[in-house]
Design a protein around this nucleic acid. Structure first.
Length: 729
DNA sequence: AAGGCAAATGTTTTT
DNA sequence: CATTTGCCTT
């Protein structure tokens, strides 16, 4: 017994500290009250966090029960827990690890009464929220053209992220503010009466719970002696306030972040929180992690070159002791198709050189860019996997199925009721529904009760009454069968009896098929779901989890595939090979961010994030001509490319010297040039002698046209189309 | 009440 | 260009 106690800690100290560099070790073992770790990209940020937790538990003998670790994404939370378990060699019990939203939810569930919420409050996702905002606005008779509901939703969330309720906001003479405020008030009231809360509300309520209930706060302040926060630069005002109040004067806080990787300002994140930290948490020890273990020095030179142009920085300089590595390739594509083809071609040789596709990624600024890239990969038969885009639990068919499950659990769930009362179509139209809504408002009851009343009091035509009755009975029957069934069977019943699956089966095209498959996927997800608490029925647990987790693991991980994603979703990831497409002004930096210096700096940080994802080889590509929304635009190469020191860049093809059409000429010439030639601008062609190339320009029409082709081997040639014998590739 | 057509509308995203 | 949204007809 004694022997064991003596033996273990010393062994653990070596395990916990082995393979840490001096800065990392300093951060892990720091015993000043608070700790701020400014961790550059690829400097071992998560590692420090995980090892510090292990240090607190195994060396300083803190109970896991007294530790709280907060992240932004479910994925990060899962990963952190796994890595701690792994390091300690056993699963941790009692420690709270979760997202801000997940933890807030947990608190509100435990203290629903003090938080002034109904016990079974529901969480609105942004789609539900938008529907509600629309509903509120319609009730106010606002012109949806003049006041877009999306904008109102955005505005409300912005206020909530700042911790402002409608009552806190001063009304000026500004008609915009007046209207937004009116909507905000109406929306607050509606949420209140429905017993639903949106994502921002989750955080705000949790903060207010503590502010207004000192005894609740006291309990958690006493419990959590150590609070650790990941991605600190992404915290918004409410999250920061939440941390401060929880920490109080006793708890020790560790914040880990990187001001250079703050890319969510548009969502309410405040980099300034890093600056306020040392002021608000006195006795802070600050450690900078600047040694990078990820990238070659050429890649870091490029990254530093880009980020150093930002004025608002705490200042860090990444370095590495690994070698220079390969130079950064820059490709000037003729248009977006040429760009995509080049990328596919580079990926092909990556694989031919014996590398895995999994180790490569194509990054872009906006999702719209993925289409062309996909087409090129498809043609080159390179398997790929797209991240982002629509999330599993946000898909229409999935949300409908979940709405049925929610109704089965609680028929007074108005949000779910509205969603599926006429899906699939069962003859309950707008007129009928409006009557039910009115009745519900008048009697201050739920839609379900109002619908029952409409039936029993025969307010409607026989046909409509029958339709409503059928719906009420359907839900009743389905709820009746709920008892004691495994979750997967409950879901299967919901999908089956509601007619959802039948509706999508009949839907024509691939879309219907995909939706049927998604519904089946939902059943598998139910089968795989494990209840956290065995004493509570499984369905409500599942629905809560689903509300807080987008379910982004849907992509099948089996196949070795190239990863496609936006620069935003690439944060936190790394790949030996990275290709960043669309390095053009107006696209990246995006034209919407050009006017405000602050937003431009954020774009620059995004470029920094993108570049630092690369471990071995980085390609940057841009297109001289790109069609966006059908019309062609000519953008110059991104300023971020120009900020990379020349000596680490290798231009793949000398910029062709052929005068490219000005936008004026383009509109008049392009419509008739190249007609009847069988080829188009930017097309990849093959020539018997010169090899492969891309069509840059036409002179004249038909077979007698002359064509400018840029060949990979021999540069640009001008050929007579009729005698050149070009073959399409 | 449901299906069809014209018009509008396009960053980034987690929870 | 492509997709979604709203309006209008049947």
């Amino acid at each position: 017994m004694t022997l064991k106690l003596l033996e273990c800690p010393s062994m653990d100290v070596t395990t916990i500290l082995s393979n840490l560099n001096p800065a990392q070790e300093e951060a892990v073992t720091s015993d000043k009250k608070h700790l701020l770790v400014l961790a550059g990209a690829g400097s071992g940020k998560t590692r420090v966090l995980v090892h510090r937790i292990a240090w607190k538990i195994q060396v300083e003998n803190f109970s896991p029960y007294s530790i709280l670790a907060v992240t932004f994404t479910n994925k990060a939370a899962r990963e952190m827990r796994e890595r701690i378990d792994e390091l300690l060699g056993m699963p941790l019990r009692g420690m709270w690890v979760g997202t801000f939203h997940g933890l807030a939810h947990r608190l509100l569930k435990a203290h629903w009464h003090d938080a002034k919420l109904p016990e079974n409050f529901q969480i609105l996702d942004s789609d539900d929220q938008l529907r509600l905002v629309k509903r509120v606005m319609r009730g106010m008779d606002l012109d949806e053209q003049r006041w877009p509901p999306k904008q109102a939703q955005w505005w409300i969330n912005g206020q909530k992220d700042e911790g402002l309720r409608s009552a806190h906001i001063q009304e000026g003479g500004d008609p915009f503010l007046t209207t937004m405020l009116r909507i905000y008030r109406g929306y607050e009231e509606t949420c209140e009466s429905l017993g639903v809360i949106d994502f921002a509300e989750l955080l705000l309520r949790a903060l207010e719970l503590w502010k207004e209930n000192p005894e609740v706060l006291e309990h958690y302040q006493g419990r959590f002696q150590h609070i650790l926060v990941d991605e600190f630069q992404d915290t918004n005002a409410v999250q920061y306030a939440w941390l401060r109040i929880l920490a109080g004067t006793r708890s020790a806080v560790t914040a880990v972040g990187d001001d250079d990787q703050s890319i969510y300002g548009w969502r309410g994140a405040k980099v300034e929180n890093i600056l306020s930290y040392e002021r608000d948490f006195p006795q802070t020890h600050t450690v900078k992690l600047e040694q990078n273990y990820r990238s070659t020095s050429n890649i870091l030179t490029a990254a530093n070159g880009v980020i150093s142009k930002n004025a608002e920085r705490l200042g860090k300089n990444l370095w590495t002791d690994s070698g220079e590595g390969e130079s950064i390739a820059l490709y000037a594509a003729f248009n977006e198709h040429d760009e995509a083809r080049y990328i596919a071609d580079r990926l092909q040789s990556w694989v031919n050189d014996g590398n895995r596709r999994d180790d490569s990624a194509i990054l872009y600024r906006s999702n719209a860019q993925s289409r062309v890239l996909e087409a090129a990969l498809l043609q080159a038969e390179i398997p790929y996997r797209i991240y982002g885009g629509q999330r599993f639990y946000e898909r229409l068919e999935i949300k409908n199925a979940l709405a049925y499950l929610r109704l089965m659990l609680n028929c007074h769930d108005d949000v779910a009721f509205e969603r599926v009362v006429n899906v699939p179509p069962r003859g309950i139209g707008d007129r009928t529904l409006e009557l039910i809504r009115e009745l519900a408002r008048g009697n201050n009851t739920t839609l379900w009760s109002a619908a029952s009343l409409v039936v029993s009091e025969k307010h409607l035509t026989a046909r409509a009454t029958n339709a409503v009755t059928a719906f009420l009975e359907l839900i009743n029957d389905m709820s009746g069968q709920l008892e004691e069934l495994p979750l997967a069977e409950q879901a299967e019943n919901a999908i089956q009896f509601s007619g959802l699956i039948e509706m999508h089966r009949r839907e024509k095209g691939e879309r219907g098929q995909a939706r049927v498959e998604n519904l089946e996927e939902l059943i598998s997800a139910c089968r795989a779901f494990e209840a956290e608490d065995r004493d509570i029925p499984i369905l409500p647990q599942f629905l809560d989890q689903v509300a807080l987790d987008a379910g982004d693991r849907q992509a099948d991980e089996d196949q070795d595939a190239v990863q496609l994603m936006t620069l935003h979703s690439a944060k936190g990831l790394e790949f030996p090979l990275v290709l960043i497409a669309g390095m053009e002004e107006n696209l990246f930096p995006h034209k919407m961010s050009l006017d405000e210096p602050g937003r431009l700096e954020e774009e620059r940080r995004l470029a920094y994030v993108g570049i630092t994802r690369a471990m071995q080889k980085l390609y940057l590509t841009f297109a001289e001509s790109r069609s966006i929304y059908g019309s062609e635009s000519f953008n110059s190469v991104s300023r971020f490319v120009r900020d990379i020191p020349k000596e680490v860049i290798e231009e793949v093809r000398i910029h062709n010297t052929i005068a490219r059409p000005t936008s004026y000429a383009a509109s008049s010439i392009q419509s008739d040039q190249g007609d009847n030639t069988g080829f188009q601008l930017g097309q990849q062609v093959n020539h018997k002698v010169y090899g492969e190339g891309v069509i840059l320009n036409f002179e004249g029409n038909g077979p007698r046209a002359r064509v400018h082709v840029s060949f990979e081997q021999v540069g640009t040639k001008i050929l007579i189309l009729a005698s050149a014998n070009l073959a399409a590739v």
